[in-house]
């Protein structure tokens, strides 16, 4: 019994330590953001990597999510609640825009780019490239973390908007093939979807982007023990990002709903 408590305490203390380190990293990133020189080229490079190069997987995810949503909503509304399939459009669009667009996009990008960032910075750490940056008068937080942080925080909302549109379109495809006409789907969307729904999703996307950037950079910088350590940092970056995205999602929703978004 005691050993379980001990182990729980250990895990808890690691967790608190990690959270503290991440808060500290966030502060340092925000401070370094305004130090000259301004690394426009590096930020652009990261935006391409995170935004542009992620479009194919973001499209696939959103399209099939929208299609599945329409299928499930259509089945429920038609056979369980019976005869209310004209509301598919509102179910799909609101779930997509408020929840699945931002969250699933964030998950996919955390898996794709969060892991890559942790692996890249982790490798640089264990091969002394981070030390080399210091000796060349380039602060690694500024040179590595700031461009990634900005790119994640700016690109996630854009990818979310993209996912919203594609997902809604996927719903339209399935709904018009199996349940209602496309004009009913479009009308239903128009009648229920509000700007606040869309804005809320975009704000969440921004937060998720910031979270995964911080988690990935922190795991990268804290890497020790060579190749094994890089593997561990990469796994941790993805697992912690997923956890923090889901946990913060609940609280963000609570706040957004309280603010009438």
């Amino acid at each position: 019994m005691k050993s379980y408590i001990e182990r729980f305490g250990k895990v808890l203390s690691y967790f608190i330590h990690d959270m503290g380190e991440m808060v500290f990293l966030t502060l340092r990133i925000n401070q370094q953001m305004f130090v000259k020189p301004f690394d426009g080229k590096l930020i652009l490079q990261q935006m391409v990597r995170i935004g542009v190069e992620s479009i194919p997987v973001a499209i696939t995810t959103a399209l099939f999510t929208g299609m599945v949503l329409a299928l499930q909503a259509g089945y429920t509304l038609e056979t369980k609640i019976k005869g209310v399939s004209q509301f598919i459009g509102s179910v799909v669009s609101i779930s997509m825009v408020r929840e699945l667009g931002p969250v699933l996009t964030a998950m996919v990008i955390a898996g794709r780019n969060g892991s890559a960032v942790a692996a890249e910075i982790g490798t640089m750490q264990v091969t002394e490239q981070i030390d080399a940056l210091f000796t060349l008068a380039a602060n690694p937080i500024k040179y590595l973390a700031v461009p990634r942080f900005l790119a994640f925080t700016l690109m996630l909302p854009l990818l979310t908007i993209f996912a919203d549109i594609i997902g809604w379109f996927g719903g339209l495809l399935v709904s018009s093939m199996k349940f209602t006409s496309s004009s009913v789907y479009i009308d239903s969307t128009r009648n229920s979807l509000e700007t606040g729904d869309i804005m809320g999703g975009i704000i969440k996307g921004m937060f998720f982007g910031a979270i995964m950037a911080i988690v990935a950079c922190r795991q990268g910088f804290a890497t020790t023990n060579g190749a094994e350590g890089v593997g561990k940092a990469t796994t941790n970056a993805v697992v912690f990002s997923f956890m923090l995205i889901l946990i913060s999602d609940y609280f963000l929703n609570a706040v957004l709903i309280a603010m009438h978004f």
Binding site: T123, M124, T127, E128, Q129, D131, A132, F134, T135, L136, A137, N139
Partner: peptide, 22 residues
């Protein structure tokens, strides 16, 4: 940090495995 960076202009470090940026 700024003063250290000034000092680092006068200092070159050659790392064990070169530590070139990949």
């Amino acid at each position: 940090e700024r003063e250290m960076n000034e000092l680092r202009k006068k200092m070159g470090v050659v790392f064990q495995y070169a530590a070139l940026f990949d």
